[in-house]
Amino acid sequence: MSVVAWIAVGSLAVWLWLLLGQGFFWRTDQRLPPRTEPAEGQWPYVVVVVPARDEAAVLPRSLPSLLAQDYPGGAEVILVDDGSSDGTGKLARALSYQYAGLPLTVVSPGDPGPGWTGKLWAVRQGIELARACDPEYLLLTDADIAHEPDSLRELVAAAHGGGFDLVSLMARLRVSSEWERLLVPAFVYFFAQLYPFRWVNRAGSRTAAAAGGCVLLRTDAAVRARVPESIRGAVIDDVSLAKAVQRSGGRIWLGLAERVDSVRPYPRLADLWRMVSRSAYAQLRHSPLLLLGTVLGLALVYLVPPYAVGTGLLTGDATAGWTGFAAWAVMAGSYVPMLRYYRQTVALAPLLPLTALLYTLMTVDSAVQLHRGRGAAWKGRTYSRPEAAPDR
Rank of each mutant, 00 (worst) to 15 (best):
Phe187Trp: 13
Phe187Gln: 13
Phe187Thr: 08
Val188Trp: 02
Val188Tyr: 08
Tyr189Ser: 01
Phe190Asn: 08
Phe191Asp: 08
Ala192Gln: 12
Ala192Val: 00
Tyr195Asn: 10
Pro196Ala: 12
Pro196Phe: 10
Trp199Asn: 04
Val200Gln: 03
Val200Gly: 04
Val200His: 06
Val200Leu: 04
Asn201Cys: 05
Asn201Glu: 01
Ala203Trp: 03
Ala210Gly: 07
Ala211Arg: 00
Ala211Cys: 13
Val215Ser: 11
Val215Met: 15
Leu216Ala: 07
Leu217Asn: 07
Thr219Asp: 13
Thr219Pro: 00
Thr219Cys: 10
Thr219Gln: 14
Ala221Tyr: 03
Ala222Arg: 03
Arg224Lys: 15
Arg224Glu: 05
Arg224Asp: 00
Ala225His: 05
Ala225Glu: 05
Ala225Cys: 06
Arg226Phe: 07
Arg226Val: 07
Arg226Cys: 07
Val227Asn: 02
Val227Phe: 15
Val227Tyr: 15
Pro228Leu: 09
Pro228Arg: 10
Pro228His: 11
Glu229Gln: 15
Glu229Lys: 12
Ser230Met: 12
Ile231Gly: 07
Gly233Pro: 02
Gly233Met: 12
Ala234Leu: 11
Ala234Met: 13
Asp237Val: 09
Asp238Met: 02
Val239Ala: 14
Leu241Asp: 01
Leu241Gly: 04
Leu241Arg: 10
Lys243Glu: 15
Ala244Arg: 08
Ala244Met: 07
Val245Asn: 02
Arg247Cys: 02
Arg247Leu: 12
Arg247Phe: 04
Ser248Gly: 11
Ser248Tyr: 11
Gly249Lys: 04
Gly250Leu: 05
Gly250His: 10
Gly250Pro: 00
Arg251Thr: 06
Ile252Phe: 12
Ile252Ala: 05
Ile252Lys: 10
Trp253Pro: 00
Leu254Met: 12
Leu254Lys: 09
Gly255Ser: 07
Ala257His: 09
Glu258Ser: 14
Ser262Trp: 05
Val263Asn: 04
Val263Ala: 08
Arg264Ala: 13
Arg264His: 14
Pro265Glu: 11
Pro265Tyr: 09
Leu269Cys: 01
Ala270Arg: 11
Asp271Thr: 03
Leu272Ser: 11
Met275Leu: 13
Met275His: 14
Tyr281Lys: 08
Tyr281Met: 04
Ala282Ser: 14
Leu284Asn: 04
Arg285Thr: 03
Ser287Glu: 07
Ser287Lys: 03
Leu289Phe: 13
Leu291Pro: 00
Leu291Ser: 08
Gly293Glu: 06
Val295Asn: 02
Val295Gly: 01
Val295Ser: 05
Leu296Arg: 00
Leu296Glu: 06
Gly297Pro: 00
Leu298Gly: 07
Leu300Ala: 11
Val304Glu: 03
Pro306Arg: 13
Pro306Trp: 14
